[in-house]
Amino acid sequence: MIELYHVWKQYQKPGWALSDVTITVKKGEFCFITGPSGSGKSTLLKTMYREVVPTEGQIIIGGKNILKIPDHKIYLLRRNMGIVYQDFRLLFHRRVFDNVAVALQVIGAPMKDMKRKVFIALRMVNLHHRIWDYPSHLSYGEQQRLAIARAVVNNPRILLADEPTGNLDPKLAVEIIGLFKEINKQGTTVIICTHDKELIRQFGDRILFLHEGKLLRKDAA
């Protein structure tokens, strides 16, 4: 369960990127955060993996206040999460396999285990036939699927995606969100930031609407 209590964030005065945001996302939920550009969607998501530290408020994930975790222990929080970005953030000088394996290398997984898990993750996103290609040889849609494979290879309990369809055409966007839905069905909590109304209409179980840092709506779709 993810709980945010009265979270405020100010980058510079005046103005707040987040103002008094209180939300609860239950385990296994599929949830969209939406709102216009600059409404604080990405900031809200970043506070959940402590890339951004709120100015005020508390964030509890899995019963633990993540703001109290010392900096050198943050990696433990992130190992339980998968994060997907609009710009994919891939290692373009490494092969598809290495791009996914990197999430397992940081935990010192044995090579045999690594190969098996990487293959399973790539098969899930239907990229297993491109395992020895370089990301630059993949289409945008495939690159995003690769980023998703990297995010899920560790079987994270939470999957956070920041505008994962921002660079994709509507057909590919539907395909990617479909993938997130599949992952969610296996019990992973999925939170997606997007401003694509069509996707929200099609897939939205729960929508959190942000405007100028304030949470305007947090009900079911």
Partner: peptide, 8 residues
């Protein structure tokens, strides 16, 4: 990327 996937 290493930081975000939990690298120490």
């Amino acid at each position: 990327i290493l930081r975000l996937v939990g690298g120490t």
